[in-house]
């Protein structure tokens, strides 16, 4: 089933070396060079895909830089806010 197929994909990606951890974490599944360029510039909304060359200061830290404006806009969306209700005990039963 699709689930099986996706499972192998994720493991092959994580334990392979075609994609960088940042690319996998941002949902990329195909290493096709076609969008290699776009993955390099992909900011994916608010997570910055850090450059590979390790020149920058980052590289040994748990937290990634977050675009505050994009986060603010994202969490103004009523639909998203109400969908999050399901994660709480206050969620109306049966929703």
């Amino acid at each position: 089933a699709a689930r099986m197929e996706r499972r192998r994909d994720l493991m092959t990606l994580v334990y392979g070396d075609e994609l960088s951890p940042e690319e996998i974490a941002s949902g990329k599944t195909r290493p096709s060079s076609a969008d290699a360029e776009s993955s390099q510039t992909a900011t994916d909304g608010f997570f910055r895909v850090t450059r590979q060359d390790g020149l920058d200061e980052e590289g040994d830290q748990l937290k990634t830089s977050i675009n505050r404006k994009a986060l603010e806009e994202k969490w103004q969306d009523e639909e998203l806010l109400s969908s999050l209700h399901n994660c709480f005990i206050t969620a109306p039963v049966g929703e």
Binding site: V14, Y15, E22, I24, A25, S26, T50, T64
Partner: peptide, 15 residues
Amino acid sequence: GDLTSHTIQFLRDMV
């Protein structure tokens, strides 16, 4: 939840 890039690198280093 969503695996972070740090987690994915950690999985590789654990191998």
